[in-house]
Design a protein around this nucleic acid. Structure first.
Length: 942
RNA sequence: GCGGCAUUGGCGGAAUUGGUAGACGCGCCAGACUUAGGAUCUGGUUCUCACGAGUGUAGGUUCGAGUCCUAUAUGCCGCACCA
């Protein structure tokens, strides 16, 4: 019987849906297990074969755990807010919600076809008010909390107020506005004037992880620095805990390193330097306190608040000029042009140890956002200080024996210290330690740990995002009462910023807060007297909605809490999280921060959200090329087969052109499809692999004309412009979901990046067909020792593979076992039943069918596949069941019809001719021949 | 510059705790069935005529190394004027 994958897969998908087979209960005596995929942003392009890689792996693991008796939570949802839908809205006027819902529908359809065991009842969408209610709720909690540095955790800000009321007599004397301003310095979600990454083309602010090399990650537009009043989240308060938490979770080393890098802990000292002629000293941060005897100048960041204090009158003009110049430089220019720049302030600092006078400079190589925005420069032992000293002709004092600083600085923290008074003769490491003790004891400074991690800027000047549950009274922000959530995103008639440059929500009319009646009213009514105030115009960034979605899946329909306490206590945390490493410094930092915050306030029971995390590799595209002849006498219509392009007559006379990989099979071009692909290739002529141009027969590789045009190939990013996008729907239609699943796993180790190469998928498909045939007749005989041995080897191997996420090595194991059993002519029920169960996580549809067959269930299927070829026909239909799909099939038609089992050859031929589908396609023509071959494929040749 | 990961036939890759290197698949070669093969099945396929050699390169540890150590090269990824 033919392996009719599409029939089998549709049948079981419908069955699973009908039975609600994968819905999960929060009440169970079983042990819980939570497997999560990073939810996708539903882009307009739909899924390509790279997307399901991780989903397939997590699905295998989920099904395995389920078969082991765990209660497995395996949900899916959509990260629905984002720039592309909004950009599209600006261009077309189409509401982002419409676009987004359309894209989501397409994603769901694509995902369903692959046979995942998601509990769709738990689907979440970040743009759904019932969902973003809890995003806004979390924001209010952050607004109403502060970070207690003694307890090292977030506490309600009411505790801070109570303490000030009790201990600080000035508190009561402050006006409400002054009190609010003071509180703002402590809130975990706070408003401040911050230097931000402003992207003019996108018209919005971006977080650090959304900017790369001075360009926006989305769109690649230039980004400049600007000071704006913005919401931020005090992520930096959690830097230490985010770092230390990494030691307790099971993530890959590379990902942990990336996060450690991003958090950037460095242990050093803060030291105070007096300014000559002033009372107040200023503070610098250094990790090399031991080099203080080599300080020959000081440098301030241009934005440093110390600048105005130290600039003398005669240098004022020069300094202002420099500051203006720095301000105008974009981030990109700064990165590209790293020439030494700077200016002298006219002031001198006093070295606290030598009492020597040291000139103070301003330069943009010192960053305002790190440490104190001021440094002591030791040119002999810091390459940046060295370059600066050389440029301004400042002295360089070597402090380490044997270090040659005539050409470059000696940055290494090793060697014996010299020229350093009481540190002389010590190893650098010991000198650092001794100096730390010295400055602590003398009070010159203190030991300090600094982090590179900055607070997350949380405002976006965009429409398509969560509105802030915030209104402004007397210029200060106030949170909406929790019971008023969600604050729904209002309608606007224009998605662009307003003409006076305010964010798009400035276009909304119904956008003011009536404090007394607790409702949204028209903004024309705004008046302090009536207690009607303006609402915040910014929306939240993309990471807001994705920071706690894993908690919401636990209890998605709860309208009383983000997640019920008991439910949270049952699932606890994500046991296995799968997704791309591109989220290492964004989502995976923010989520951990968000979770730790909720943990501090007692809303969740685990400090870390994701116990084990695996990064699946990216799937790259494998592009195909044809080679246009551009040598002498070229018409632009001649294409040379890849195997010939190095021949002397063609060498350097061909131009590679991307060709759609979907009209290339195993690197052989479908020449008719190529001619129909685009008008410019309509009259294409070829030099085939055999070196001739004669086309005896239009069928590729036909025996009557063994003409093959071989394409070249290259590994590139999968993208539309390279014509190398492979759609999973096409693979499912041609080979079935089970083949797709097995093949994606078979490609290589999950974590590694690898190209999608369709060559080779036939091998996996063949295996399934062979396996299928083993279930033709099943006996109740006792299995032999050999057969059992083969099965048990397989059980051991598959178990090990899944436990170790080594899915790629399972497919060979299945193949070997199938081969062995088939060599033993094994068709015993006991064996085949077990085989089906082992296959179930990997290829669930065929496994269900096989298992039912092994159980002796009636599984009727008498369909034949008919392949018919029409040379003249460009359009044809693929008929399956009762549905009719148009296909571009190069003059070939494929459809199915029913016919009793074991019908003789001649009888089948007659039946084919008599069949109504055949009649439809024959359209009065008489076929040259009908061929029935052992695989029960019927070929009709016209 | 700092950090992480990788490197095995024509190709993707396997070798799980230091123990027969190249499993399995693709491709290729030969054969069978066929008007035909683009279907299916069978056999072969690291290199070398062979002796032998062989896991990027050079050393080391070991009875034994793809696997451990040292150095080095190449590629990919992350961070990067972070004091």
């Amino acid at each position: 019987m033919e392996y009719n994958f599409s029939e089998i897969e549709q049948k079981w998908q419908a069955e699973w849906e009908k039975e609600n087979a994968y819905s999960v209960s929060n009440k169970s005596n079983k042990q819980p297990f939570y497997v999560l995929d990073m939810f996708p942003y539903p882009s307009g392009a739909g899924l390509h074969v790279g997307h399901p890689l991780g989903y397939i792996a997590s699905d295998i693991y989920s099904r395995y755990k389920r078969l082991q008796g765990f209660n497995v939570l395996h949900p899916m949802g959509f990260d629905a807010y984002g720039l592309p839908a909004e950009q599209y809205a600006i261009q077309t006027g189409q509401h982002p919600e419409v676009t987004t819902n359309k894209n989501i529908a397409r994603y769901i359809e694509q995902l369903r076809k692959i046979g995942f065991c998601y509990d769709w009842n738990r689907q979440v969408r970040t743009c759904d008010p019932a969902y973003y209610k809890w995003t806004q709720w979390a924001f209010i909690q952050m607004f109403n909390s502060y970070y207690d540095t003694t307890l090292q955790k977030a506490r309600p800000i009411s505790e801070l107020i109570a303490r000030w009321e009790a201990e600080d007599p000035t508190w009561a004397t402050l006006s409400e506005r002054e009190q609010q301003e003071r509180l703002m310095n402590y809130r975990i979600a706070y408003l401040s004037d911050t230097k931000v990454n402003w992207c003019p083309q996108l018209g919005t602010v971006l977080a650090n992880d959304e900017v790369s090399e001075g360009l926006s990650v989305r769109g690649g537009y230039p980004v400049e620095q600007r000071v704006m009043r913005q919401w931020s989240l005090r992520v930096s308060a959690y830097a230490g805990r985010l770092l230390e938490g990494l030691d307790r979770i099971d993530w890959t080393d590379s990902l942990k390193e990336t996060q450690r890098n991003w958090i950037g802990r460095s242990e050093g000292a803060e030291m105070q330097f007096a300014i000559k002629g002033q009372d107040e000293p200023f503070t610098i941060f250094t990790t090399r306190a031991d080099t203080i005897f080599g300080v020959t100048f000081m440098v301030l960041a241009p934005e440093s608040e110390y600048v105005q204090r130290v600039v003398t009158d005669e240098h004022k003009e020069e300094v202002e000029e420099y500051l203006a110049w720095v301000k105008h430089r974009t981030e990109r220019e700064r990165i590209a042009d790293r020439r030494v720049t700077g200016v002298f302030t006219g002031s001198f600092a006093i070295n606290p140890l030598t009492q020597g006078e040291i000139p103070i400079y301003i330069s943009d190589y010192v960053l305002a956002g790190y440490g104190t925005g001021a440094i002591m420069a030791v040119p002999a032992h810091d390459s940046r200080d060295y370059a600066f000293a050389k440029h301004f002709n400042l002295p360089i004092i070597p402090l380490i024996e044997g270090a040659d600083v005539s050409e470059q600085s000696f940055d290494a923290k090793e060697g014996i210290v010299m020229n350093s008074s009481f540190l002389n003769g010590l190893e650098v490491k010991d000198a650092i330690q001794k100096m730390k003790e010295y400055i602590t004891n003398t009070g010159i400074g203190r030991v300090k740990v600094n982090y590179r991690l900055r607070d997350a800027i949380f405002s976006r000047q965009r429409y398509w995002g969560e509105p802030f549950p915030i209104y402004y009274k007397d210029g200060m922000p106030y949170a909406l009462p929790e019971e008023c959530l969600p604050l729904q995103l209002p309608e606007v008639n224009d998605f662009k910023p307003t003409s006076d440059g305010r964010p798009p929500l400035g276009n909304a009319d119904l956008w003011a807060w009536d404090e007394k009646n607790k409702k949204v009213v028209n903004k024309s009514q705004i008046s302090d007297a009536k207690g009607i105030y303006p609402l915040e115009l910014c929306t939240m960034p993309g990471f807001a909605g994705s920071s706690a979605y894993y908690l919401r899946y636990m209890d998605p329909h709860n309208d009383q809490a983000l997640v019920d306490k008991d439910v949270n206590a049952y699932w606890r945390q994500v046991d296995l999280y799968l997704g791309g490493s591109e989220h290492a410094t964004g989502h995976l930092i923010y989520s951990r921060f968000w979770n730790k915050f909720l943990y501090d306030l007692g809303y969740v029971c685990e400090d870390e959200p994701f116990r084990k995390l695996i990064n699946q590799g990216m799937i790259q595209g494998r592009s195909n090329f044809v080679y246009r002849y551009i040598g002498e006498g070229a018409t632009g219509n001649l294409y040379i087969s890849y195997n010939l392009i190095d021949n002397p007559e063609y060498k350097d006379k061909v131009q590679p052109i991307h060709v759609d990989v979907n009209i290339v099979h195993n690197d052989v071009l479908d020449i008719n499809a190529f001619r129909n692909w685009m008008p410019e290739y309509k009259n294409a002529q070829f030099v085939f692999a055999d070196g001739t141009s004669v086309e005896d027969n239009p069928y590729i590789g036909s025996p009557m004309a063994p003409k093959q045009y071989i394409c070249g190939w290259a590994i590139e990013k999968m993208s539309k412009s390279m014509f190398n996008v492979v759609n999973p729907d096409d693979v499912v239609a041609n080979y079935g979901a089970d083949t797709l699943r097995l093949y994606e796993m078979f490609l290589g180790p999950l974590e590694m990046s690898k190209p999608w190469d369709t060559n080779g998928i036939d091998g996996v498909h063949r295996f399934l067909k062979r396996l299928w045939n083993m279930y033709e007749t099943i006996t109740d005989e006792e299995p032999t020792k050999e057969e059992l041995k083969s099965l048990h080897k397989l059980i051991k191997k598959i178990t090990w593979d899944i436990e170790n996420f080594s899915f790629n090595t399972s497919i060979p194991a299945f193949m070997i076992a199938q081969n062995e059993l088939s060599a033993l002519k094994c068709n015993k029920r006991a064996i085949l039943e077990q085989f089906a169960i082992l296959m179930a996580p990997y290829a669930p549809h065929i496994a269900e069918e096989m298992w039912h067959k092994a159980q002796g269930d009636q599984v009727p299927s008498t369909k034949f596949v008919v392949n018919a070829e029409w040379p003249e026909c460009n359009e044809a239909y693929l008929v399956e069941d009762t549905q009719k799909y148009p296909v571009q099939f190069n003059g070939k038609v494929r459809f199915t019809f029913e016919c009793p089992k074991d019908t003789p050859k001649e009888e089948v031929e007659k039946l084919v001719l008599a069949h109504e589908d055949t009649a439809k396609y024959l359209a009065g023509n008489t076929p040259k021949k009908i061929i029935v071959v052992p695989g029960r494929i019927v070929n009709i040749v016209m």
